[in-house]
Write a protein that binds this DNA or RNA. Structure first.
Lengths: 195, 195
DNA sequence: CCGAGTTTCTAGCAGTGCTAGGGATGAGAG
DNA sequence: CTCTCATCCCTAGCACTGCTAGAAACTCGG
């Protein structure tokens, strides 16, 4: 029994090693640099070992995405709970979201633009994804007007943030005016007279 | 002289053939199916011919993007000029934009998410790109509040549309509520009391 | 100490974007 | 009409990708 448990522990350890190596390599040199050969070299095993843990490169990226999404959710929660008014909370969460995207672009990409083999808008979605969405939802709830579907409003706000981030990061929007655009977006989501 | 001009004409003809073949192949089977070998086979020439016209695959995609962007701009203009009120114009342009993205996803991707070697937010940007942005700007102008930077406001509205489209198309937002989310976005950009 | 079973590696496949070099084709000179 | 030269285009190949089959090495129970 103990031998098997030790092996399972070592396997789990190595699996974590793969995921963190993939994340660090992606954050350091971008996802283009994350090849299976490079990754195998990084963990000091041969390529096929990767496939004994994950179905393929996409599954490794998905694991990194889930892990990174937990970080994002945590940062948004911290920003939200530290804010005073409802408007400040919405702005704080939006600021935390876009700051995360700019500070850790590779992580943001794998969560929100690349790996598609993750279930998203369903109950089977990983908890980390639901947590992140939940943080947005909590910030949006107080500023919803009467009769507005808060879920859809959150999705729309999220889309605004996501659009700002992706267009800016791909060079389609100039970087320097980001804060002003973010303020415009938030301003249009907060009903006038909300404190 | 005439021989040279004939050759130049044939070269230009073949170049257009390459671009349209790339566009049609991408629209039919997605950009993953657009390989240089497949493209060469489609135009009935060998691979290196592609590189005598374009610097690489990215340049071909950029050409498709510019061509597609002209289509998008035209569709947005048609929608805008057919609308009555300012609010209707904004909604019409937004609807045309998202409809284009859903109807021609490969084209949308190459314009707004993939090919990065195009100058965007500069005066050197291809006219088609500037036209498309101009259409958005024309629709946003009438609904800008006093003191708002219309350029930045347009960028923010654009980001909202882009976010809705990309999150939906990658499966991160459910498809069916798209119209409601779009209506929410537009509703939050139009000041209350604007006809 | 030896055979069974698991784990890991070597080697290779089919594909990608891209390019160097030679061979055919056609234009101009004598 | 023939020869030379330049232009164009294709064959073949490079270095790389994700992924996998089968052999080798190692571990462990008897």
């Amino acid at each position: 029994m103990t031998i098997q448990t030790r092996r399972e522990r070592e396997r789990a350890e190595r699996e974590r090693l793969i995921v963190t190596a993939a994340r660090e390599l992606a954050e350091a040199e971008g996802w283009d640099a994350v090849t299976t050969r490079r990754l195998a070299e990084e963990i000091e095993y041969s390529q096929p070992v990767l496939y004994s843990h994950f179905k393929g490169k996409g599954a490794i990226m998905a694991a990194v995405a889930v892990q990174g999404c937990a970080d994002l959710a945590e940062e948004m929660r911290a920003a939200r709970t530290a804010a005073g008014s409802a408007r400040e909370a919405l702005a704080a969460v939006g600021g935390a979201y876009t700051a995360f995207a700019r500070r850790r672009p590779a992580l943001y990409d794998v969560i929100f633009t690349l790996a598609v083999d993750l279930p998203f808008a369903t109950p089977e979605a990983p908890p980390a994804l639901q947590d992140a969405f939940g943080e947005l939802l909590q910030a949006v709830l107080p500023i919803a007007a009467d009769g507005e579907d808060t879920g859809l409003l959150t999705e729309t706000y999220w889309a605004g943030l996501h659009g700002l981030v992706t267009l800016m990061r791909s060079g389609r929007l100039p970087e320097e005016a980001h804060e002003q655009r973010l303020a415009l977006l938030i301003g249009h989501f907060v009903p006038p007279g909300t404190s």
